Amino acid sequence: MTVGSFAADWRQRWEESDEHPPATVSTYTAAVKWIREELGMLRLVECTTGKLEKGVRRIADEHGDTTAKQARTVLRHIFADAVRLDALATNPALGVSPIKPKAGEVRAMSQLEVVALRNAARQWEATPHKSFRPYRRDILDSIDVMLGTGVRTGELLGLRWLDIDLEADVPTVSVMGTVTQAKGQGVIWKPAPKSETSKRTLYLPSIAADALRRKAAEREFLPESEAVFASEVGTWRNPSAYRVHFRQVRELASLDWVTPKTIRKTVATTIYNSDSLDNASQQLGHSEVGVTAKHYVQKLNIGPQGVVGVLDEWFQSAS
């Protein structure tokens, strides 16, 4: 059997074996495609670690390090399955060298860019849409909640009214779940966020608390929905549909590089610059502070202001 044929069979068995997050299914499906393209004609018994290594490197050259890293992971699963089914005695993919994608430069939004995004959201809400389908006109409120909390898109759309306390001295929101697309079920709410550290209670600054108060005032239109940012009919909102609207807003603001994840980076960078990296990491719900430092904080190459006094005093004493 060839790698291409076995990989296609493996993907079908894997998908039917359990319920997998839609993002993982999409990632693994794409990885199988590139594996079949680069290694598909090899027979399983012909595969050596060296041949697989060269195939993964070709994927890296053609499609980038991140795609190659995913392909390497899937190759390990595919050949482990081949061993399990007695098609091979050993797994040659285990020796393929790790792919270490280069971390890109973190870019957070400036205050002027935040203002531009919020103004564009107001403009989007006020613009008539040429569609017979209803539109939720709360994109500004959702952006304000992200700006005030740094929550992920799935966490934002998974906020429930029972998770919010606007009557406390300092209002809070508890991030207790996320929304995801489930096979055969549509969009559902999952009680476990991305990781256990994602379950967290966050204090709300005015920008987020005011947005949620506006949402609470509108709740009479969807009184039975437990979702704060519900769909037009009161169900859990599809993250993909939400991102379509977000992209329309960022285009109005001429901020094509901005995504909801950029807002998370902006929140982390703001907290880091004014407080600490640990608190920025806790706010975002990361299990490791290194993830925050590497991927979410924009570093400013500015020397410490306190050295001015130190150097002045030193030069004065030397003169």
Score class of each variant (00 low, 15 high):
L162P: 01
Y135A: 08
K69D: 11
L75E: 03
V25Q: 08
Y28L: 05
S231R: 05
K100A: 05
D144I: 02
Q70G: 07
T24M: 09
E62S: 15
Q185S: 07
E53T: 15
A121P: 08
R58K: 15
I78M: 08
L300N: 11
I35N: 00
W124H: 12
A217H: 11
E53P: 00
A30K: 09
N301T: 14
E251G: 09
T259D: 05
T262A: 11
Y272N: 00
P223T: 13
H245L: 12
L94A: 13
T27Y: 03
R57P: 00
H245C: 11
S287C: 04
G154V: 09
D169E: 15
L112T: 15
F315I: 15
R264P: 01
S131C: 09
W189P: 02
N279D: 14
G64C: 08
E288G: 01
R213D: 04
A108C: 07
D65N: 09
A68W: 01
A120I: 13
V25W: 03
R152C: 05
K261Y: 12
L162G: 02
E167H: 09
A211N: 07
R152G: 02
T29Y: 02
K194E: 07
W236S: 00
D275A: 12
E105L: 05
L112E: 15
D163P: 08
D138S: 06
K54E: 13
L147T: 10
N279R: 15
V3T: 12
D141F: 04
T2C: 05
A230T: 12
H63Y: 10
P191R: 06
A93G: 07
E251C: 09
R237T: 12
A241H: 07
T49A: 04
H20P: 01
K183E: 05
V297N: 00
A230G: 08
H286N: 08
N273G: 02
G186E: 06
T2Q: 10
S281V: 10
S317F: 08
P134V: 11
G186C: 11
P92Y: 08
Y203G: 13
T49E: 03
R107P: 02
T259F: 11
V173P: 00
T197A: 15
R264K: 06
T27P: 00
A31G: 07
P205C: 13
